[in-house]
Design a protein around this nucleic acid. Structure first.
Lengths: 206, 206
DNA sequence: CCTTGTGAAGTTATTCACAGCA
DNA sequence: TGCTGTGAATAACTTCACAAGG
């Protein structure tokens, strides 16, 4: 274990390794070469990545799969279930509230929030939709740390302020707005239009 | 213009620059510093990025906004509208068919495909939902190059084969499946569970 | 002054190559 | 033999620093 700072790209790859391990349904041991075939990353890179987290593997055998998965879960902080709220219950927001992938990865969507009276009081995928005005209090009370943001970009900033005031620690932002956040609140932007653009570009250039 | 190979990160930033330019609603000229404030990237990086694409700016003035936007559009290949199909009309698929962001970025969702008889023949957001069995022919006939994939991961591979056989050139994959594709077909994975995981991890480590 | 564009320096990430262990 | 773990080499990316133009 070389206890240097862990590169960001390594962190970004960990969840894909985890997914690869889960999918392979292999049991016992897996080598970096085998994991390479599943995930598409090079064996060297995989070993390098794992080396940041200590002695994980066994020379000549590989990595013990269940141990490795536990370790990654632990590193990623998904060894305990985390509460998530969805703000903005439009088409995308509703879809995300029903999205099974979140559940599977250890996230519990606990409720939705919107400003539209027609949506407030409703139920989507078994979870209540509440008024944004009660959001701050809710976040505090239930100690929610994660929010998924799918509101119109015009109100994204004001909603974000309320999220931060409530104590949210991380925002998965589906709006095109570039949010300004205090250092301690983490942000990940998922811009579907931008993703397609990038894809379009890759198609033309390579 | 230094005609070296364009770094991947540069390409990934271009669409965000474009978005920043569109949002700023500024007219005339914009400097790298101003664009920096909008996008969050450093002025040096912005200049470096643009420098790959030739003499774009004017010293002392900045970049001519409409010119710059056209240039980026051209580079990203979004100067013409592109047809997109959505395969898998579940919650997420429906949301994506209604997603205005695609339209705004120059992508036209032309139709949806599913295997569920209850969905086939339906209309989502003004577009027909058709049987996957007719998909290959449709792609050929309408020369569709882009597909958004939101099917259950179990059938992702077989659907993908049909997409490729039809002549699709790029796939935006929302399923957790790691798709194996011929070199000429580009792939971008958007795994919402993985995104949240990464965010969770960032929260804990930094 | 204000800008851009860019070589060079600095930083970070990936790949290589091999020691050491089973 | 096949494997991991890791320093060293390489490659990729970002930031700096400054010349030159408005």
């Amino acid at each position: 274990m070389k206890s240097r700072k862990i590169p960001n790209p390594t962190i970004m790859r960990l969840s894909l390794y985890y997914r690869g391990l889960a999918e392979s349904r292999k049991e016992g041991f897996i080598s970096s070469r085998e994991l390479s075939e599943v995930t598409g990353f090079s064996p060297e890179q995989i070993r390098q990545d794992f080396s940041y987290f200590g002695q994980l593997g066994y020379p000549g055998k590989g990595y013990e799969i269940s141990l490795l998965m536990d370790k990654i879960k632990n590193i990623l902080g998904i060894d305990k279930r985390l509460k998530v709220i969805v703000v903005g219950i439009g088409n995308l927001g509703s879809a995300l509230m029903s999205y099974r992938g979140f559940q599977e990865q250890g996230f519990d969507i606990v409720s939705g929030f919107d400003v539209d009276p027609k949506k407030i009081g409703g139920v989507v995928s078994g979870k209540k939709v509440m008024n944004v005005s009660s959001m701050k209090k809710y976040i505090r009370k239930h100690e929610v740390k994660f929010a998924v943001l799918t509101v119109p970009s015009g109100i994204a900033h004001s909603i974000t302020e309320q999220l931060v005031a409530g104590g949210i620690r991380a925002i998965l932002n589906f709006t095109p707005a570039r949010l300004k956040l205090p250092r301690e609140v983490k942000l990940l932007n998922v811009d579907l239009g931008v993703e397609l653009e990038r894809l379009s570009c890759l198609t033309l250039l390579r």
